[in-house]
Amino acid sequence: MLIKEKISIEEFDNKSYQIRLVEPFEEEKAILTHYLHNIHNGVSEYYKKEALTVIKDYIEYKNENQISIVEEEALQQLLFEVENVPFPTSENYSFKFIDLFAGIGGFRLALQNVGGKCVYTSEWNKDAKKTYRENFGEVPFGDITKEQNKNYIPEKFDILCAGFPCQAFSIAGYQKGFADTRGTLFFDIEQIVEKHKPKVVFLENVKNLVSHDNGNTFKTIIETLEQKLGYKTFAKVLNSATHANVPQNRERIFIVALDPNQVKNNTYKLVA
């Protein structure tokens, strides 16, 4: 006799299920949760085919183990799970963005609070990914240097935000900059911007990025954004103590780059 059972995204890590798969998707949970988060808009098409394959395989696995569940029921259960979170997206969003090097979701929370809808997330740290899922119901894709993960990025979105790794530029580290693998991740951002041409690029890093290598590292980033990619850039070091209303003296460099072809009023300034 078949029995009913609730299912959860966490169950996709079940070892007996993973062993059963002939060709498992490396980013199963990311594909599935991104599909569910965008199921009410056209962005879901970027994830739909593989997401439905994931669900089909899992239903077959459940049925083989005498647990009865159908696709529609599975979708509804999983959809409730990804939507019933502490920080859901507003239904009345006005722009779309992607969240790279997402951490636990600081950029995402800020942009959701001003009317944004996140359509793609990437973060490689496993613990940060778990926290991100608890906060937003979405599992980030992994290593953004992998072409297969870049290929899941939807074609059109308005803002790219990225707090790209700062250890390579931090005064607390060895300050190798672009000589360090983590420092070259800026050029993965460059590739994504060049391909998708978002209206706005919003970057954040440690204050030391500005002075690193006698200013050459920062100069390279600005020149790449302006001369190669055609964006108009604004940059300023801001302190969380004066802007975030928190008891923390945390200075960071913020870079905002606007595509003048898509953002006609591009005379903004970053103010202290």
Rank of each mutant, 00 (worst) to 15 (best):
L2V: 12
L2E: 14
K6P: 04
K6D: 15
I7C: 05
S8N: 13
N14T: 11
Y17T: 07
Y17V: 07
I19P: 02
I19D: 13
I19V: 15
V22C: 06
P24C: 01
F25I: 08
E26H: 10
E28G: 13
A30H: 01
I31N: 02
I31H: 05
Y35M: 02
Y35S: 00
L36W: 04
N38H: 09
I39E: 12
N41I: 15
V43F: 06
V43N: 03
S44F: 09
E45Y: 11
Y46P: 00
Y46E: 14
K48A: 09
K48Y: 05
K49S: 13
L52N: 10
V54C: 04
V54H: 00
K56L: 14
D57F: 01
D57N: 15
I59F: 08
E60R: 14
E60P: 02
Y61Q: 08
Q66R: 12
S68F: 13
I69S: 01
V70H: 14
V70M: 13
A74Y: 02
A74I: 00
Q76F: 03
Q77W: 06
Q77R: 01
E83W: 09
E83C: 12
N84I: 04
V85L: 06
P86C: 07
F87P: 00
P88S: 07
T89C: 14
E91C: 06
N92L: 05
Y93L: 02
K96A: 10
K96Q: 14
L100P: 09
A102Q: 02
I104T: 15
G105F: 05
G105C: 07
L109R: 12
Q112G: 00
V114R: 08
G115D: 08
K117A: 11
Y120R: 07
T121D: 03
E123M: 09
W124I: 12
V139N: 09
F141Y: 08
F141C: 03
D143N: 12
I144M: 11
I144T: 02
Q148A: 11
Q148K: 15
K150P: 00
N151L: 14
Y152W: 13
I153A: 03
P154M: 06
K156I: 10
K156F: 07
G163T: 05
F164K: 06
C166E: 05
I171R: 11
A172F: 04
A172C: 01
K176V: 04
A179N: 13
D180L: 08
F187H: 04
F187M: 07
F187Y: 11
Q191S: 15
I192T: 08
K197Y: 02
K197F: 07
P198F: 09
K199S: 12
V201P: 01
N205Y: 03
V206W: 03
N208L: 11
L209I: 08
V210P: 01
S211T: 15
D213K: 12
N216I: 04
N216A: 10
T217R: 01
T220L: 08
I222Q: 06
T224E: 03
T224A: 02
E226F: 10
L229H: 10
A235F: 15
K236H: 11
L238F: 07
L238S: 03
N239P: 04
H243W: 00
A244T: 06
N249A: 00
N249M: 07
N249G: 03
R252K: 04
I255H: 05
N261I: 01
V263K: 08
K264W: 07
K264E: 15
K264T: 12
N266S: 13
N266E: 10
N266Y: 11
